[in-house]
Each structure stands twice: as C-alpha cells, then as structure tokens.
C-alpha cells in the first residue's frame, strides 16, 4: 500500500512542475482540481497505511474531493468565464525559468527534509515532507510571479494544498479539525475573491495586479 502513497506523492511533485509551466488559465485550474483529487486519495492511502481513525480520514477525503476537486475549481472557472479574462497567464518570470526555479525549490525541500530528524520527518512516508514543502513553495512562487488576480488565488489554493499534504501525511493528532478549518477558510477566500475580482473587473476592465499598483498613492 506504501506504493500507492509514494505514487501519489510523486504525482504531486510532478504536478508542481506542470503548474509552473502551465500557460493557460483553464489548464492551471484543471491542474489544481487534479491536485485536490490526489489530495483526497492521499488521505485514503494514509488511512490504509496507518489503520486507525478510519472515519476521520474518510471524511477528509470526501470533503477534499468535493470541495478542492470540484467546488473550488468550478468557482474559479465560473469567475473566469464571468469576467471573460484572457486565457494566458502573463507570467513575470518565463516558463522555462519557472521550471528551473521550481526544480531548485523542490531540491531545497528534499534537502530540508533530509536534514530534519527522522522521527519528525517521517509521517506516513519519507516523501511527505518534501512533497508538502515543494507544493507550499510552488504556491508561493505562483503568487509572486503571475500577474493576474485570479492566478494569485490559484497560488493560494496550491499553497493550502501543500499544508494539507503536510497535515494528512503527518497524520497529525486532531488533524480533522485543522483540515476542516482550512477548508472553510479557503472556501470563504475563494468566494470573496470571486466577488472582489468581479468588482475590480467591472470598475477597471481588467484584473492585472500590476496596474493596481498605481492606486497605491
């Protein structure tokens, strides 16, 4: 069963690379949806490899499948369609360079997890920590280097998914509570973002955050 776990974590690692190189908004949202689904499966795999607290893991799985794999991407797609945003992502950093940076961040994640003491680092699998760290840093990277407001939300989603990987994989005590709180948070965030982006778009005809800088003064 460990195989399933490491396959999922490996897939999550590769997904980060794909996110870095995705150039279409719709593609990016789809990738986040896949990430949510993988996350749900991850909690299933963790449950199987650990044994205990089965109903908790099952609940987390169903919730994250529904919300992260379905509802949130749908909301994002809906917003995207409503504000008829252009499909390209307009990155500040080119895609190839993004790939290299993500690879370096992933390498850093592996290095960090290799120097953390084994007792802490190994939750369900030695891969959990690198995968979580790499996903978190990918989320942050996407937030920093993509211009559109909507991609910043995507970045935040990825970031949050990273935290969930950590929570699920480490099998933290009372993980369910944390997980549910996070889900609620992110749901509220995406909802507010949808409203905000829609309103910004209505008043300014675009959602390029660079142009918002002018409002600063």
């Amino acid at each position: 069963m460990n195989d399933l776990l490491s396959l999922l974590l490996g897939a999550l690692l590769v997904l980060n690379l794909l996110l870095a190189s995705a150039s279409r908004l719709r593609h990016c949202i789809k990738l986040v949806a896949i990430q949510g689904v993988l996350l749900g499966l991850l909690s299933l795999a963790c449950a199987q490899s650990s044994g205990g607290h089965n109903w908790q893991f099952l609940l987390v799985m169903i919730l994250s499948l529904l919300i992260k794999g379905g509802l949130l991407p749908y909301l994002l797609l809906y917003t995207m369609r409503r504000i008829s945003v252009r499909r390209e992502l307009e990155p500040v950093v080119g895609y190839s360079l993004s790939l290299v940076i993500i690879l370096a961040l992933t390498g850093g994640a592996f290095w960090l997890s290799s120097i953390t003491p084994t007792a802490v680092a190994h939750g369900a699998s030695p891969l959990v920590l690198p995968a979580a760290l790499s996903t978190i840093s990918t989320g942050l990277f996407l937030m920093v280097t993509r211009r559109k407001a909507i991609t910043q939300v995507i970045g935040f989603l990825v970031f949050e998914n990273g935290i969930s990987i950590f929570g699920t994989g480490m099998m933290i005590h009372n993980g369910l509570l944390v997980e549910l709180g996070l889900l609620l948070d992110i749901f509220a965030l995406v909802f507010i973002m949808g409203l905000a982006v829609f309103n910004i778009n209505r008043s300014f005809q675009h959602i390029d955050t660079h142009s918002l800088n002018a409002l600063g003064d």
Binding site: G10, L17, S21, F110, S113, S114
Partner: peptide, 29 residues
C-alpha cells in the same frame, strides 16, 4: 515553441524521480 519548455520539464521530472529514489533509500547522508 513549446517544445523546449516541455523537454526541460521532462529533465526536471527525471531529476525528481532520482530524488524519490534517494529519499527512499534513506540512510547514507
């Protein structure tokens, strides 16, 4: 035009496969 980026992604993925094995092997450091 997208191909070089794709190939670079393949390179990165292969390196991740290596990292997976290394981390799985565990000891040695």
């Amino acid at each position: 035009l997208k191909l070089p980026q794709f190939l670079l992604g393949a390179l990165c993925t292969a390196l991740i496969a290596l990292a997976l094995t290394v981390i799985g092997t565990g000891g040695g450091r």
